[in-house]
């Protein structure tokens, strides 16, 4: 029944039919362009080199977190422990001797810690069949407890190695250092996702678990690896965030778990898994930080950021998610 009117005036409908997948695929990028035009028209300072630099420095940690979140969401899960892990890693960083020699060890310890947390998440999800929401919610709460038990709830007095400030806020040929690192990470993980057998398996496990099983893929291993990638990237993001902020409190990573999920979802991913990708997620991150910036440039009170951000997340998600399921 519903098909017959389409065949009647096929010319017009087929144009529309072609337009819908286009918007589903590129809707976010269209949205981003519109947003940038709006940003420029309301505030010409938006495109000043200084503002762009600030904006990107500010957004790089979120970019790293969202990059990792993409892998987990591709498996059909999600990771709520990202923000808590970022804070915990930041606390670890300040509790070690503030000397530049220690930067590499701090990174190694944090990455190992992240890998462990990711492994626990992945293990719970695959071997214990706990739903990802609950497994990562539980790790989030446990990490929070460990962190507070360690710091006794007090703001930290420990200092960071001075090199962290350079990583978090410095520039290299007027390009923010953390952005360079983010670009490198995107490059590496894009190769992993789009050019390796692991990436292919990840899409198959997320999109069609049955087919993945029948073709002999060890789904559990693929999923555990995704959670570990997410947690490791979150640890790195936490270190760059603490370098950017310069001081640590116990909540420094708060909100990053939900922001990163929102960015990935806006980038075209689906909670059913198997959909979305790195570049969509990064576009989602850019939308979020442009909105933040825009609210500031408009001179609106800082609380308005939250209102605008909430509305845009819903809007952007519905913009191209026109009942595709």
């Amino acid at each position: 029944m519903s098909d017959s009117p389409i065949s009647v005036d096929s010319g017009e409908m087929s144009a529309l039919r072609r337009a819908i997948p286009f918007f589903q695929k590129y809707g976010l990028y269209v949205f981003l362009v519109i947003l940038l035009i709006v940003a420029f028209s309301v505030s010409p300072q938006f495109f000043s080199p200084r503002n762009i630099q600030n904006l990107l420095t500010d957004g790089a940690p979120l970019g790293m977190a969202a990059l990792g979140q993409t892998f987990v969401i591709l498996t059909g899960g999600l990771d709520l422990s990202v923000g808590s892990l970022m804070s915990t890693v930041a606390v670890i960083a300040t509790s070690i001797k503030p000397d530049n020699i220690m930067i590499l060890p701090i990174f190694l310890i944090s990455i190992c810690f992240g890998a462990l947390v990711g492994f626990v998440n992945g293990w719970l999800v695959t071997k214990r069949k706990v739903s990802p929401f609950l497994a990562t919610l539980a790790t989030m709460i446990v990490l929070q407890g460990i962190r507070f038990a360690y710091t006794k709830g007090a703001p930290l007095s420990g200092d960071l190695p001075p090199g962290f400030r350079v990583l978090g806020t410095g520039t290299l040929l007027s390009i923010p250092v953390n952005l360079v690192v983010l670009a490198f990470l995107i490059f590496v993980f894009a190769i992993l996702l789009y050019r390796s057998s692991y990436g292919r398996k990840l899409y198959l496990v997320g999109g069609n678990p049955r087919a993945a099983f029948l073709s002999g893929i060890n789904s559990d291993l693929v999923i555990i690896a995704a959670y570990m990638i997410c947690a490791i990237l979150a640890s790195i993001a936490g270190l760059f965030l603490v370098g950017y902020v310069g001081s640590v409190d116990n909540w420094v990573g708060r909100g990053y778990e939900l922001d990163s999920i929102a960015a990935v979802m806006m980038g075209g991913a689906s909670f059913k898994g198997g959909k979305g990708g790195i570049f969509g997620s990064i576009a989602g991150v850019i939308v979020l930080i442009v909105i933040y910036n825009l609210v500031l440039l408009l001179g609106l009170p800082i609380q308005a950021q939250l209102v605008v951000k909430g509305l845009v997340i819903i809007l952007a998600a519905s913009f191209y998610l026109t009942r595709s399921n």
Binding site: A262, M265, Q303, A304, L306, V308, S318, L321
Partner: peptide, 27 residues
Amino acid sequence: SLTVWLGVHPLIVTLGMSMVLQGVTLL
């Protein structure tokens, strides 16, 4: 309504709503 009519996942809808409400409260 947003969940049903827009087909957006409730996690995203209610997360967005939570940000809006937090902003309104702080305003």
